[in-house]
Every structure is written in structure tokens, then in C-alpha cells.
């Protein structure tokens, strides 16, 4: 019981770290065509996330891998029922990944435009689709006892799903704007500041609406009513959104970025705490729902993997933080070349 519970929260934590890290580069990539007026602007935006995006994306691989290792049944049913959106996310990530590398290889506007488009789509689609997918998981997915999906891609785009997608998108956009505020200066920085304000104004009502809609569309709040202490998560989340605004006004983008990181992590845990112990609820019949207790690996595997995660994830965090320190601050002239 305890082992499965620990693993459930590690599972949630890995998703939260993935959204927190890859989230800002998704945000930057989505803002990219709108804020990148000149070639210099574009170069600055790409190079601001250049050293990080690849390492950030591995958190997705790790979240997926850990689902496979610790909850094989969840991995199997989740990934096969969500076949279509996952494939879209994968194709988006593939195009985005090569775009960063290919774009600068040939000096022609047409060539660059193709990869600019790939950077945009490759950042926008995962940001939106992860939101859609997670909102639908909160709501429940139509699958039966055999793990067969009874639905299609469009069914995921129900109002609550789309709202979840919008929420994720706005969170990542704000997170990305804070990052750009921290890394850029001059004219681009002024435009970033203006857009960050607009995103914030759109985010607040979306977040409130999502919290209300969750009451009607899901039963996440059952856990909250049973353990009122969980409401602290929502409180932190809402507070951190206002802290972002506070630092945006002060033009302290590093603190604003830390605050938006907190928002993303607490938002993820808002869902995780509400789901517990469910990992992949079925909307057809609750008896098909996959939980941390009916889908986990054997105790031996859980113990071995716990050892691996407890030792190595802190090491990963340590060297990734070293990378962030190494490339901290505004982009300098010499970081502009590639």
C-alpha cells in the first residue's frame, strides 16, 4: 500500500517537473512567430531555450518510462486509448526538435520559414494537447475492462477538455514570457512585457472557470472534501498566479518565472491529489478504473525502481540546475551566434 502510494506521487511529481521545465520552452516556441520580428529576435528566442529544451524533454520520457515500469497496466491502457492525441504530440515534438537544428543550416528565408512554422506548431500542439488529455483523464476516459477505447479524437475536445487545453496553453505562455523577460533586452523585452500582461489577464478567468468546471465535470473535489488540507494546493496555485503579477509589475522576471513554475507544479498536483488513488479513470464504469493499487508492478520492481529514482533523480536535478546556472542571465553578444 505504502509503496504504491509513494509511486503514485512520484508519478505525479515527474509529470509536474516535465510541465514546469518543458512548459517554458513550449511557451517560448508558441510566442516565437508573434514576438520574433527580426532575425535577431528569432535567434535570441531560440538561443534562450537552446541549451535546455532537449534536457527538459527527457522529463517526458522519464514520466512515460516510470509509468511503464511502476504501473505497466496504466502505461498500456493510457497510451493505447489515447493513441491519436499521443501520435499528434509525438509528431509535433519530432518536427520541433529537428527544426531547432535544421533552421540555421541554410541561409534562405523560405527555408527558415518552414522550420519557424515547425517550431510554432511543435510547441503549440503539445502544450494544448497535454491540457486536453489531462483534463479528459480527470473527467474519465471511455474505455472498457479490456482496455478498449470507445471514442475518437474529437470526443476529447469536449468543453472541459478544451478548457483544460486552454489553461495549459496560457500557463505555458506565461511561463515562457517570464523566461523571455529574463533572457532578453531592448525592444524585444518591451514587447515581451506587454504580452505577458495580456496572457496574465486571460489566464485568471480561465483558471477560475477551470476550478468551477472541475466541480461539475469531474469528482476530483471528493478527495478535497474528505481531506480539506488539500485545499492548500489550490490556495498556493491561486496565490502564485498573483505573485507572478506582482513581480511582472516590478520587472523582476526571475522571480516571476519561479512563481509561474510554482503555479504549474501546484496546478498539476491539484489534479493528482484529486485523482488519488485513481490514475486512469474509466467513464464507462468505475470498476474498470485503473488505480495505483490495481495496476502497479510487483513489490520487488517497485523497490528497485524506488532506489533508482531516489538516487538518480536528485543527481539529474543537480546537473540540470548547474546547466541553468551556467547559462543564467541575459543573452550576451557571444551567445547570439550559433
Amino acid at each position: 500500500m505504502i509503496l504504491e502510494t509513494i509511486w503514485f506521487f512520484i508519478w505525479g511529481l515527474l509529470w509536474a517537473i516535465f510541465f514546469m521545465t518543458d512548459g517554458f520552452d513550449f511557451g517560448v516556441g508558441t510566442l516565437y512567430p508573434f514576438l520574433g520580428k527580426s532575425e535577431d529576435d528569432k535567434r535570441a528566442m531560440i538561443n534562450s531555450i537552446g541549451p535546455f529544451w532537449d534536457g527538459n524533454e527527457v522529463w517526458l520520457i522519464t514520466a512515460g518510462g516510470v509509468t511503464f515500469a511502476a504501473f505497466p497496466k496504466v502505461y498500456a491502457v493510457m497510451f493505447s486509448t489515447l493513441y491519436a492525441p499521443l501520435m499528434l504530440i509525438l509528431f509535433a515534438l519530432i518536427l520541433r526538435g529537428v527544426a531547432f537544428e535544421f533552421r540555421g543550416q541554410i541561409d534562405s528565408p523560405g527555408w527558415k520559414r518552414i522550420w519557424d512554422l515547425c517550431i510554432f506548431i511543435g510547441s503549440f500542439m503539445p502544450a494544448f494537447l497535454f491540457g486536453v488529455v489531462f483534463a479528459n483523464i480527470f473527467r474519465g476516459i471511455p474505455f472498457d475492462g479490456q482496455g478498449v477505447y470507445h471514442g475518437n479524437l474529437l470526443m476529447l475536445l469536449n468543453p472541459y477538455g478544451v478548457l483544460g487545453g486552454l489553461l495549459f496553453l496560457l500557463l505555458f505562455l506565461l511561463h515562457g514570457a517570464n523566461w523571455l523577460g529574463m533572457k532578453t533586452d531592448g525592444d524585444l523585452n518591451i514587447r515581451v512585457a506587454a504580452v505577458a500582461d495580456k496572457i496574465w489577464i486571460a489566464l485568471v478567468p480561465t483558471a477560475v472557470l477551470f476550478l468551477i468546471a472541475t466541480w461539475f465535470a469531474t469528482d476530483l473535489y471528493a478527495n478535497y472534501l474528505a481531506n480539506p488540507v488539500f485545499f492548500l494546493i489550490i490556495l498556493c496555485s491561486v496565490l502564485s498566479i498573483f505573485v507572478v503579477k506582482f513581480y511582472l509589475v516590478k520587472k523582476d522576471y526571475f522571480s516571476a518565472w519561479c512563481a509561474s513554475a510554482t503555479t504549474i507544479v501546484t496546478c498539476t498536483f491539484f489534479g493528482i491529489a484529486g485523482l488519488f488513488p485513481r490514475m486512469f479513470p474509466s467513464i464507462i464504469d468505475p470498476q474498470y478504473t485503473l488505480t495505483a493499487f490495481n495496476s502497479s508492478s510487483s513489490p520487488l520492481t517497485l523497490k528497485i525502481m524506488l532506489g533508482v529514482v531516489v538516487v538518480f533523480i536528485p543527481i539529474v536535478i543537480a546537473y540540470q540546475m548547474w546547466t541553468y546556472r551556467l547559462f543564467q542571465g541575459k543573452l550576451t553578444e557571444e551567445e547570439m551566434e550559433y
Binding site: T62, T67, F68, A69, A76, G147, M305, V308
Partner: peptide, 24 residues
């Protein structure tokens, strides 16, 4: 997961761990 879910469910306890370790 997407295409070989029966396989994943059957061997995830063993095979999944190796992939997770590879990533981390």
C-alpha cells in the same frame, strides 16, 4: 504503449524498468 499494449502489460514489470532506468 500505443501499439503493443498487451505486451507492455505482460512484461512491464521487467521490461519497463529497463527503459525507465535508461531514461533516468
Amino acid at each position: 504503449g500505443t501499439n503493443w499494449s498487451r505486451y507492455s502489460e505482460f512484461v512491464g514489470d521487467v521490461f519497463g524498468s529497463l527503459l525507465a532506468i535508461e531514461a533516468s
